[in-house]
């Protein structure tokens, strides 16, 4: 890995199923994440993805790319345009900084998830990829 490297984009179709499954898997029962009628009463046009699911997807995007040995150190995200059903979010990432150490490289990756409305999520992830070694192959 090197600074400036771009990660291949990951397209995530925002289905109603993903929104509800993500909310329930994260134990978030706020009605705006599963009940469209109540979401509308609160001024939202539909249900929308909860932040825990976005966080999970950002984590997945990074570990998908850097592999199963990659260790997430920090995930910091900010939400913007909501993820509504029927949309598609495209996650893109750029390595901003790499710190090389004997036991592995630690990268800071800038991540953006864009949907049809705008930028759903912006954030940075710090991830360490251990050096290849006896224990590094798993």
């Amino acid at each position: 890995m090197r600074a400036g490297e771009k990660l291949p984009p990951l397209e995530i179709p925002i289905t109603r199923t993903l929104i509800v499954a993500g909310a329930i898997a994260s134990r978030d029962y706020q009605d705006v994440h599963h009940d469209a009628e109540l979401a509308r009463q609160k001024g939202s046009p539909d249900i929308f993805m909860n932040i825990l699911t976005t966080n999970g997807l950002v984590g997945r995007y990074i570990t998908d790319h850097f592999g199963p040995t990659a260790e997430l150190r920090k995930v910091a995200i900010r939400l913007g345009a909501p993820n509504y059903p029927g949309d598609t979010m495209v996650l893109t990432g750029t390595v901003e900084k790499v710190v090389e150490q004997a036991d592995g490289d630690t990268a800071t990756v800038r991540v953006v998830g864009a949907n049809a409305i705008g930028s759903h999520v912006t954030g940075t992830v710090t991830v360490t990829v251990p050096a290849e070694g006896p224990g590094g192959a798993g």
Binding site: I12, L18, A21, G22, I24, A25, S26, R27, L52, T53, N55, G56, L57, V58, G59, R60, T63, D64, P68, T69, E71, L72, V75
Partner: peptide, 27 residues
Amino acid sequence: HWCEAMGDTNPAYAGPDAIAPPTMLQA
């Protein structure tokens, strides 16, 4: 359940030595 919802197939989260996805912290 989390991995199914996220579509996350990272082998680090399965099997006898599984760790939890770090982003599950709040969950």
